[in-house]
Design a protein around this nucleic acid. Structure first.
Lengths: 163, 163
DNA sequence: GATCTTTTTAGAATTATTCTTGATATTGTT
DNA sequence: AACAATATCAAGAATAATTCTAAAAAGATC
């Protein structure tokens, strides 16, 4: 897991230590953009670095988040997910399949707040049906035989959270 | 904790059971709008209903969220908070004092997504300095003597999360 | 009021995250 | 290269948030 030079350079002379572990964690997030949880990052990292510990994963993620290289993605009562943050974007959570998609959301940052409020970060989270799932529903290809979207949606509510 | 008639009516004939516990939980959220965690709701509810259990709090919150009466507020790696959802609004988290403010954020819902994506819910979360804290900093009234915002902000990073 | 279904309770279980401590690595300095 | 100072890592314990389970209670229906 070798980090592209462009990223390594961001650390040069900044007092920030780019350790093997941090490089590994950041590299994994860059490589596979599926918004893994800390535990998922841990499992992936162990393949290259069998000795790495989960606490280190959390430490590395904290550092990367502090440095602005990684974003945390928060979903309702689910473990925090992580995302290499290379350009401005938002997240779309599919209520059918549980996938998280990066989406371009051009918000201009001009939030109309009460005086005195200073915005440092803005996060937009969308929920609904992703393209794949909405196509399935509109075509009526319903493998479960439960009827349309609303029935399946109701079903989702009571089943366990997506792993 | 008696629920205003306007809310009780929403349940009439809907098959939804407005139990004492659900009424209590919803009433608490309506009454004190400080975005409590499930545990905080539990502690408050016990004052009126000493026998209520934490699992019931979670059950009630789940039900209220399903019915669209309550919103979940997700912050980085912190317990989920709850908010009686009476009008469209967003949340502002103050990185200095940890307070969560409701803010009017007029987003028009026209998100520019890839074809096929259907948005059911949109959530905007802002982070930064609330009015009170930004006033403190700009006035230089710094009770800790740590200097300006950046120093205090750095400090916040390493201290324990707000209870 | 008998019965069926849903909800509540209490506590155990699970999972996510943080903390602690000693070992290891890195940086800066002779 | 050796040294001290500092930061990071690893392992596992500890804490905290959330979910699950099973039996009792409550609400709805007939």
């Amino acid at each position: 897991m070798k980090l592209p030079l462009e990223h390594v350079q961001r650390f040069a002379g900044s007092g920030i230590r780019l350790t093997k572990q941090r490089e590994e964690v950041f590299g994994l997030l860059l490589q596979k953009r599926d918004h893994p949880t800390a535990t998922e990052v841990f499992l992936r990292a162990k393949k290259h670095m069998p000795s790495i510990s989960l606490a280190t994963i959390y430490n590395c993620l904290d550092a990367l988040v502090d440095w602005g290289l990684v974003k945390q993605v928060n979903l309702d009562r689910a473990p925090t997910r992580y995302c290499a943050n290379l350009q401005e974007h938002s997240h779309f959570y599919c209520e059918s399949c549980g996938a998280i998609s990066d989406v371009d959301v051009p918000f201009d940052g001009r939030w109309d707040l009460p005086p005195g409020f200073i915005v440092a970060h803005a996060e937009v989270s969308l929920k609904g049906q992703c393209a794949k799932c909405s196509a399935q529903h509109s075509l009526g290809t319903d493998p479960i035989g439960m009827g349309g979207f609303s029935a399946q949606h109701a079903k989702m509510k009571t089943q366990k959270r997506h792993s």
